[in-house]
Write a protein that binds this DNA or RNA. Sequence first.
DNA 1: CAGTGGTCTAGACCACACT
DNA 2: GTGTGGTCTAGACCACTGC
Lengths: 279, 279
Amino acid sequence: MPLTIAQSENIRLCMREPTQLPETLNGGLFDREALASKVPAFSPLYQQIKALILQSLNAGEWKPGEMIPSEFELAARFQVSQGTVRKAVDELSQEHLLLRKQGKGTFVATHSEEKFQYRFLKLVPNAESLSSSVPSQRTIVWCKKAKANPEIAKSLQLPPGCGVLQIRRILSFACVPTILEDMVLPGDAFKGLSAEELQNHQGPTYALFEKTYGVRMVRAQERITAVHANPKDAQMLNINDNTPLLQVERLALTYQDKPMEIRRALYKTEHHHYRNDLN
Amino acid sequence: MPLTIAQSENIRLCMREPTQLPETLNGGLFDREALASKVPAFSPLYQQIKALILQSLNAGEWKPGEMIPSEFELAARFQVSQGTVRKAVDELSQEHLLLRKQGKGTFVATHSEEKFQYRFLKLVPNAESLSSSVPSQRTIVWCKKAKANPEIAKSLQLPPGCGVLQIRRILSFACVPTILEDMVLPGDAFKGLSAEELQNHQGPTYALFEKTYGVRMVRAQERITAVHANPKDAQMLNINDNTPLLQVERLALTYQDKPMEIRRALYKTEHHHYRNDLN
DNA sequence: CAGTGGTCTAGACCACACT
DNA sequence: GTGTGGTCTAGACCACTGC
């Protein structure tokens, strides 16, 4: 049945002037004023829905691994059609924030998920069939408190001198030390994180972060250069001072692009390489 | 108006048994048998449409930069709804094979397009604001014919000993030689390509390839390691033998994932870095 | 079986570009 | 104005999961 003019008019108003809609019947589950204030006033509906879902994710309404409401439930809650919710969820699952499972539901993505473990680790063995592409051993060198220097403070969007956690560790593949990594985390968000916890947990470090500290890394940027190790670092990796290494500087972001980790790693590329797919 | 049962039945048949549909009215513009033979028999309609569009692109029915038929025209041609064409086109434009321009039409993507020039070149200046991120100078060292060794033949899916083109060149940024690059191309596809042509054309090399040789690179894989230059290569880049460099090995693919180029490049990362965004 | 996501359709209207 | 892509809706049915 075609839309009536009145219905169409409602839709138009809904898209262009959300705050002027009559009171909805959703029992205050969400607030169109808040919506209008958080996103550009005249963005497409599905992007507004996307922003709302993002807010709920960020607020922890649904935890990593949990199922979110079905498309029809969300459609009812936001007073839009299921197709509009679908488009929002489509984009979020493309960005790996949500994970759709046919017949089951839609789930908050997690770094624990088998399929997405270590999805930020691009170093793979040259002979992929021979050795495992996940680190076989993880050694925490230290985990200590420090004050952020100006450069780090700026990158993490913290006030200078703010408390941070400094972590150094070595990752080995097939018992060969291959990665030397220094991480810097905001102290507030990771209060209580210790070398023991880092050493003992199973699976990816980012899975620990999201499970225990509620910090989920969703994107990252890496800057790669070729360097020589300094003598101390070379010793840690059991290599000659003169060995060329990849230096990978990472800035990892959580929801709404808030930076939550700086990482500088040295990759030994004798038996491995950094793999990148260009589309 | 809701679908009748008969219409639904038609849709079902169309999805599951394309070859059993009655003759279409499209004047033989396409052949459902051919369709069924090219893609899995039971794939969603929109993927079948996607495969058909891909075939037309590959066959050169629409050249890079040209406009393809409107969504409604394609829908009529393929006897599906506009929404189904839309989904196919959506995916293709996400893969950078097509480019949608609101109000204008949908175009075959091209490496000449301002927005996508050098989209495979991930080396950017450390201070992005200071210097340009596109090479200011290009020097062809040589462009010569050779026979493919077994390894190269395998990568390019050619018979061993097949004729190939070997190209070496140096790219400079702000007059500083920064990239030393060796490319290998299948001789058949690039018959007549000369050092002069490579030297003199404007814009990205991949734009030349698609304009003059009809070879459009759509994807690529890169393997990055850290190396030392050999003395000769070091001289070309005007650096010390001991300078660490990024070695970037690329395999570039055209439509249907056919490999068409092998490239081994050395990147000097004194003033630049390889930038990668992880999603 | 019911519930979930996945596909497909048909139709309305908006936003943008060209003429 | 006409034609293009972009958004939104409503409704049907399919495919998969788990009770």
